[in-house]
Design a protein around this nucleic acid. Structure first.
Lengths: 226, 226
DNA sequence: TTCACACTTAATTCTAAAATGAAGTATCGA
DNA sequence: TCGATACTTCATTTTAGAATTAAGTGTGAA
C-alpha cells in the first residue's frame, strides 16, 4: 500500500512530470510537443514521461492524426494536484489566477463541423440544456434534444443513415476541449450556415458568427459569446 | 511555482519519506527510531529524511528528553496525503481501516502528572467542556474552568505560585497525543489520588482507575473509558 | 510517392540524491 | 559519574532513473 503510494507520489515529483501536470491544471489538453516546449526538454524525453503518466493512469491520451493530446484521466487527479499545491509555502498571489482567459480564439471549422471557441461553447450549451449527453465515447441525443434538433430543421434519422459516426466527441486544437463532431456536428454547421447564423470567410476554414447568429444562440441555447 | 510544486511532490515521493508520511496518517506522533524500524532503514537515514521533511514544513518535531516526536505540521498535509492516496489503483479495501483501536494502554503517570490513555482522555474532556483551552504553547483555564477546578478542590492560585509551568501540553509516549502537564496536571493527579479516583499500583508508575473514579469522570466530564 | 512532421523505442550515459560507515552530542537511569 | 540510548553530522559510496544519442513508425500535405 505505501509502496503504491510512494510510486504515485514520486511519479508526480519528477520536475518534468510536475510541469506537465501543472500545465494541465487549466483543464485543456496539450500535445506532446507543446508539453516538451513548456517543460523545456526533448520530444524523446517528454514521450518517456508521458508514457509513465499514462501507464499509471494519471493521464489519458487522445490521438488526433499525428498529434496526441494529453489530459488528466480522471477528476481526482486535479484534486490531488491542487491539494499538493496548497502545501506550497504561499507567496503573494500576485497576478496568479487572474486573466486565464485568452483573447477569444477564432471560430474555425474542423473538417466539416464547428470547432473553435464557438464549437466548444455550443457543445457545452447543448450538454447543459440536456439536448445531448456524453457517454464513454460518444454523444447521444435525448428526447428533448430530438425535439430541439427537429425544430431547428435537422433530420436526425437522415443523419443517422450516413456512413460515419453520428455524434462523436472531437478534441478541438485551440480550445483543447471536446466539441461535437460526426454527422450531427456537420449537420448542425450546415444548418447554421443555411440559416445565416454563421458565415465562411472567403473560402477559408475560418467561420464568423453573424449578428443574427449571436442573437439566436442566446435565444435557443442561452449562449453568450461575450 | 512549478519548481516548488515539484519539490514538494518529490519530497513526498521518496519511498522512505512516503512511509513516514503514511505512518503518521493515524494522527499520532512517532519517534525517529520507531519510524526507522517502520520504514526499515537506519537511524542516520531516517534522521536525514525527517530533517528534509521538517525543513519543508511538512512535519513538526517535538523534543521530549532524548526522544523526538514527529507529526504533521499542519492539517493540509493530511489532506494532501489522502488526496494522493485516492489516486491509487484501488484494490479490495480488505481489512484496511478496520480496527485502528489497539487494546487499551495502561494508565501511567508521567513524572507527576497523569498520562496514558486516561490522561489524554481527561485532557480532551477538559478541552471539550471548555474548562481549559489550548493556545500556541500552553493551556489556560477558562472562567468556567476556574469554578470547576475550585469545586474539585484544586486551588489554582496556589498552583500558579509554583516555580514551574502552570499548564503545559505534554506529549504522551503511548497515546502520542497531548495531555495536561505542569503544575495543574500534577495538582489534578494529586487530587484524584486523594479523592480515590485513581490509585498507584505498588509504588510503580502505573496507575489504575477505581470504580468510583470511573463513575465520577462520567459525572463530571462525561468521560467513558470504554 | 515523397517529404516533413509528430511521436516512439532502445541502448547508453550521466547525475542527483539515497544509503552507508564512522564519528560525534545530549539525555536518562543506575 | 558512567554507560546505554536516541539522535545527529559528515565524508564516501551506491544506485535508480532521467537525459541523450540514434535509430525507428505512422500521418498529412504537396
Amino acid at each position: 500500500m505505501e509502496e503504491q503510494f510512494s510510486q504515485v507520489a514520486s511519479l508526480i515529483g519528477d520536475p518534468v512530470r510536475a510541469k506537465i501536470l501543472w500545465a494541465l491544471m487549466d483543464k485543456r489538453a496539450y500535445t506532446a510537443t507543446e508539453l516538451a516546449v513548456y517543460a523545456d526538454t526533448t520530444p524523446q524525453n517528454i514521450s518517456m514521461h508521458l508514457n509513465k503518466l499514462v501507464k499509471a493512469d494519471l493521464l489519458a491520451v487522445e490521438s488526433q492524426g499525428r498529434h496526441k493530446y494529453y489530459n488528466y484521466s480522471r477528476p481526482e487527479i486535479a484534486y490531488a494536484i491542487e491539494a499538493l499545491a496548497s502545501l506550497l509555502p504561499k507567496e503573494e498571489p500576485k497576478t496568479a489566477y487572474t486573466a486565464d482567459e485568452k483573447p477569444i480564439r477564432f471560430c474555425r471549422s474542423c473538417y466539416d463541423h464547428l470547432a473553435g471557441k464557438v464549437g466548444v461553447t455550443l457543445t457545452e450549451a447543448l450538454l447543459k440544456q440536456a439536448y445531448i449527453i456524453k457517454d464513454a465515447d460518444s454523444f447521444s441525443v435525448t428526447a428533448e434534444g430530438e425535439t430541439w434538433f427537429d425544430q431547428f430543421g435537422i433530420n436526425l434519422e437522415e443523419l443517422k443513415k450516413q456512413k460515419r459516426y453520428f455524434a462523436k466527441p472531437c478534441l478541438d486544437w485551440s480550445e483543447r476541449k471536446h466539441h461535437l463532431a460526426g454527422a450531427l456536428g456537420a449537420g448542425l454547421l450546415n444548418r447554421m450556415i443555411e440559416d445565416g447564423w454563421v458565415r465562411r470567410v472567403n473560402n477559408s476554414r475560418a467561420i464568423i458568427v453573424t449578428g443574427k447568429g449571436e442573437q439566436r444562440m442566446m435565444e435557443h441555447l442561452k449562449i453568450s459569446l461575450k
